[in-house]
Nucleic acid binder design. Structure first.
Lengths: 232, 232
DNA sequence: GTCGTGGATTAGACGTGTCTAATGAATAAG
DNA sequence: CTTATTCATTAGACACGTCTAATCCACGAC
């Protein structure tokens, strides 16, 4: 199937939103993600539905079909492989690979994808810690990580992934020494929206908004973090 | 100036045709080069003229302005750097880099271009022997090479460049051991459209149509090839 | 010089992706 | 249960790049 760049972008957006929330995705959420107006999204979504890439219930929301998910996974694979490649082979900083990958992801051939993957030894994660879908495009496993902001004082965690889309935020984290693999001790979760942590013996405070975008896993297997949503 | 991929393709096409012939370029020539219909070309050319990228005389032909040439040179630089990069760093064969480069040339950033150029040590030519415009995008020097088919029996020449656009032809040349740098002795130019050459002691015959796409320079400075067009 | 032919342009249409303005549905508040 | 608000959709327009069909210009043959 021949898809436009725009369509791939919408599918990627829906994929991301759907992964985050686990529920059908609203028109306005997509609109925000792709930076287009709501009517534009409606008409694109209709188009995607006609092609069998999404399932849509009017006035409710939209979900990817398996075919749609496969396309999204392909785009995500391209994106993350490119981020890894640009960082490792072309000396890009992890702070600014995102933009370049966002364009190129739509324009590389199957062959390019394969060669890059091979060159990198089929990596599992990109420089921000995000998992790279395999060449088979099987859906990714559920996310085991939790937001740093959901943890309590005393927890020791390992940074698993950080959000790749905001350059300023990435630059901030880079400066703070926070990247995938960094061990973080939660010192204090203050009520005023700051989280104090110790990294490498060094204490520092992060805005809660930032802490929320840092996904972590327990540093020791016997410690489980508090879940943000107490579930049903 | 924000140009579409399509516009860049037209400018590149005009650049190539203009370099080959040295004269204004016809609508039909462009149409063939970009594989679009003549009316499509007319309307695109009007558009380019409005933007000051080409000079146009209705019913006559079109030429690049200096600005248009600069854009074309940028695209060509991207294309040829990419061909060099894909060949050297990603193990592509020179036979099939062209297609990948043709797409990517429109989508790499200035930063990408710089890093690739640096990684390769600012190469002067791509894998097919075509000159790579410098970062300053100064017009390329005039072409000193001559078609192999313009030479006579007894001439010893060095292959300078081969046409990069026809994969079948490239595969053929690759198989024949003909690439930039190959030393070729012209054995015989038969009237029936075949050119016999000796390469590495090995004699073989090439169709004249192919020999015409192989650009060569004299192997010794004191020997000048016969010019195809006896000029005015 | 006239005319015919071939190439170029204009006319008019279409698909895609986008927008703003107007309308319609779902839902939360009372 | 009604209504107000919010969010989604429909209506209609536009830019862009493309096409086919119709018309127009230039130039070589006579």
């Amino acid at each position: 199937m021949m898809l436009s760049d725009a369509m791939e972008d919408y599918l990627k957006a829906i994929y991301r939103l759907q992964s985050e929330t686990g529920t059908p995705v609203s028109t306005s959420a997509i609109a925000e993600e792709v930076e287009k107006t709501a009517p534009t999204v409606t008409s694109m979504v209709q188009n995607l539905a006609e092609r069998g890439l999404v399932e849509r219930e009017k006035y409710k929301g939209v979900e990817l079909t398996p075919e749609g998910e496969t396309v999204a996974l392909e785009v995500v694979r391209h994106h993350r492989l490119l981020e890894a490649y640009l960082t490792e082979q072309l000396d890009y900083s992890w702070v600014d690979v995102h933009e370049e990958a966002d364009t190129l992801e739509h324009h590389i051939s199957e062959e390019f994808e394969q060669r890059v993957a091979e060159m990198l030894g089929d990596p599992d994660v990109d420089p921000h810690g995000d998992p790279i879908p395999g060449a088979d495009l099987r859906p990714l496993d559920g996310d085991e990580t939790t937001p740093l902001s959901d943890h309590d004082a005393g927890d020791r965690v390992v940074v698993s992934r950080v959000r790749d889309r905001d350059e300023a935020e990435l630059a901030y984290l880079d400066d703070a020494g926070i990247r995938p693999g960094t061990v973080v001790d939660v010192v204090n979760v203050a009520p005023f929206g700051m989280v104090t942590v110790r990294i490498d013996g060094d204490e520092q405070s992060l805005p809660e908004a930032v802490a929320r975008t840092i996904r972590v896993r327990p540093a020791r297997a016997d410690r489980t973090p508090t879940e943000g949503v107490s579930d049903a």
